[in-house]
Design a protein around this nucleic acid. Structure first.
Lengths: 177, 177
DNA sequence: CATAAACAGTTAGGCTCCTTACTTTCAGGC
DNA sequence: GCCTGAAAGTAAGGAGCCTAACTGTTTATG
């Protein structure tokens, strides 16, 4: 679960001091940025650690969840890549491993010979059936320190940041200096 | 900037529905969890994208910042690894690249022949001097959608989650199923 | 002191993701 | 119909992190 992060975040007083030197530096904004990065990473690492004890990576778990939803249990690699937010090439690798582990299978597509269909195997369904409840329980636990109101607040604040980022990215094509 | 993520988060109504099936699933907790993961990733990716336009990775940039702080401009790999939160092996690689780019230099340690000292070169200092103001401005921009109060709220909520995770990890040695 | 333990940096190899480029198959315009 | 372009899956190779094992140096201990 990489994301190289500082072990100890810069203290707020240091940011105040740094702000004198760098005109564009908003101390509280940077403070919030570092916290967001670190906590996001911590939560991500905790999820990854949990899944690792069940011998699956985040990427592969997401594929399984996508296949499991709504009783479709069948999908093309391109669809899965799009939905999971990875490239098709990456999806090939994820499916390779899942297939090797016997959790999904590849089959020919009856109408389009360019593509294939990926389907959960019986073992894949059983695996998910066992893991999913634990997974949701574990995820819920991570947010347990916040009460219902705080959870809503957090979502609201994160959505605001997210919208800002999307606007910025949308506006300037790429991330330009 | 990986972290495989769902392109579209599960909608809250779906979580409500899923909660009927999985007793441990707290809908709003999962909702918040997914938002935290996604926004953390978005912010991380934005930072990485910005740094990439300046031909440096997050990891290497962190090393430079650590070396630059407080006029010490000198450190051992082990210290840097500890402070940056990566393994010594990873730090070796980061320093290798930075050295190849001429931004840092390795020198013998006068008192301990096991270790070495890493120091910013003139070019490294110049590079940082040019990049740092932009970096802080960019980071500040990302949090711009939030006003001062909201930033403080966000930090408070994230700290609460973080403390919960630390407690859990501290209590149970590893992340057990 | 001599020897075992601890410690620093590095090397080798693995994992997950990426980009780029290739091959096959399909679809639309002439 | 043919041929160009688009789309799908894959292969090859890279980046960034990891763990485990190796090498040399220092420290502690019996």
């Amino acid at each position: 679960m990489p994301l190289l992060m500082l072990k100890d975040l810069p203290r707020y007083e240091c940011l105040l001091k740094a702000a004198e030197k760098y005109p564009g530096l908003e101390p509280m904004a940077c403070h919030a940025f570092f916290h967001l990065l670190r906590t996001g990473d911590a939560v991500y690492a905790a999820e990854g650690g949990f899944l690792a004890t069940h011998h699956v990576s985040q990427g592969r778990f997401n594929v399984l969840m996508l296949l499991n939803r709504c009783e479709r249990q069948m999908s093309t690699p391109a669809e899965l890549a799009e939905e999971a937010g990875v490239t098709r090439a990456t999806m090939t690798g994820l499916i390779d491993t899942l297939e090797k582990d016997g959790l999904v299978g590849r089959e020919d597509h009856p109408e389009n010979r360019r593509t294939i269909r990926v389907r959960l195997t019986k073992a894949g369904r059983a695996y998910l059936k066992k893991l999913t409840p634990k997974y949701f329980r574990r995820v819920s636990e991570m947010i347990e320190p916040l009460n219902e109101l705080e959870r809503k607040q957090l979502v609201r604040l994160l959505e605001k940041v997210q919208r800002g980022l999307n606007r910025k990215l949308g506006g300037s094509i790429a991330i330009k200096a």
